[in-house]
Design a protein around this nucleic acid. Sequence first.
RNA 1: GGGCCUGUAGCUCAGCUAGGUGGAGCACCCGGCUCUUAACCGGGGAGUCAAGGGUUCGAAUCCCUUCAGGCCCGCCA
Length: 524
Amino acid sequence: MHWVDVYAEQLLGRGKKHFVESGTSISGEPHLGSAEDLIISDGIAKAIIEKGGECKAIWAMDDLDGLRKIPKQLPKEFEDYLGQPAFKLPCPDGCCASFADHFTRPFLENLARIDVKPEPVSVAKMYQDGKYDNVVRIAMDRAAEITAIIKEVSGSDRGDDWLPFFPICENCGRILTTQAYAWDGQRISYRCKGGIAGKNFIKGCGHEGAVGIRQGKLPWRVEWASRWSHLGVTFEPMGKDLMASGGTYETGKAICERIFNSPAPLAVPYEWIVIEGGKRLGKSAGRILTIGELIDIATPEIARYFFFRSKPTSHKDIDFGLGITKLAEEYEIAERTYFGQDMGLPEKEIEDVKRNYTASQISGIPERLSQVSYSHLISTVQVTNDWDHILEKLARTDDISGMTQAEEQRLKVKVEAVKTWLATHAPEDMKFQLQAEHPEIEISAEEKAILAKLLGKLEKAEWTAEKLHDSIHTTAVESGIKAGAMFNLMYRIFLNRTKGPRLGYLLASLDREFVVERVRHFST
RNA sequence: GGGCCUGUAGCUCAGCUAGGUGGAGCACCCGGCUCUUAACCGGGGAGUCAAGGGUUCGAAUCCCUUCAGGCCCGCCA
């Protein structure tokens, strides 16, 4: 059984109503790994619903977290904001209501393109609206027990005076720099003494004061537990780093059960996405890879497929170069398998492969197979840019007659994806440019004779990829030159380079008049 | 010291939830296509399922132990 169904059935065994939470901290643009969390949630949620259960999905924007370091793409002025909660920061480009919006809006918009649409919730707003009042009071009243639980589970001793609350300093607006030291049942007293953020120390302003329970936040381990409890979260995907013994999940679970008297959610651990065979995203990658980029070059369905084809616990190596064509090919095999074509897969695998396909769909499962392969489009879109011409050319080599509007729309999206891939990530040797004008190249007398010989064949040949390929090959044999030299010659006069896509398909997608004219020109 | 995950063909991995003759793709070898690109078609060799033990009529699968790799176990998230 596919893993989404395994989780769904396990959860349905516990109850019919489910609630999945995902959370993302806002310290710049969320990368592909942050999206993984939400996509896993979505797959399981949909499986629960298909099996007759209910499942709500919520996405917590952790905009109350302090800014710990300045994201690379931000100007230096943001240093002043270090330690301040993300919701208070301005939009770096002045285009959005806030820093948090600026980075999360494209993230959520891109997830919506693959039908991942959790209800977004601002954590800062939840505190401000008093949604956390209850849990903060409980946490403050029972601070000593919480300290004991953390010590018991994780081995870390916060000290007897520790209070599970970070006030926002009234003077400097920072949250990473404050230390709470007293709770009188209404207000929390604190000092702004400075705090550690990674390798950096963020200076406090020295202010001492007292704030109400809506002017700050619970520490992460406590907050997570409180969120599970008051929202009634039943499962939550989490990176495997949170699953260590004594780690965040274990402490949160103990706090959730013992302080808030709620069952902890089922943890769905997942592995990191890696690039280039092992580098972690975000950390060592020089560049942020986002879900939007993946969708842009792979199509929405193939982007989803990347996440569902393997278990959450296996490593996912993403390759935006040639790897995308492999991924697309694999998806296309799954699609043909779903529609009953025998792709030579072992019996045992077929059900899961079909499930990979259905889990990857975004607007219902198509009623019939209508597929033009990604690899074929790579060559087609380089011959022409125009949609009607693309259709016309595809019609010569693929059966695309009688496409429904939905099918045409999907093809359009795929064509755009291929174009984007070619423009951004394709290796150079996959690219070519059909020469609209005669390229300025030297053609020897012998080559001219060969082209003249070919010309006669082209004028009469049936205009299919196979026949054209044959004509070219026969000409080479008759002229006593190697096939390779013949193909090389053809690429030169059409592409002004020495290699290219499969020539039969390329020529078949062009007009006979154009091809004949080009060959005639170089044969004299 | 502890935890989670991973270990299956040369490589990348599926199969493990619920035990029933070990699989796929790539690579390799042979043959074919008058066939250029990381092309196509047919066939083939491939393995102590990390190791050991246990349960069982039967174990890649369940249990225990060991080994190897990755990540994690101060704060913050």
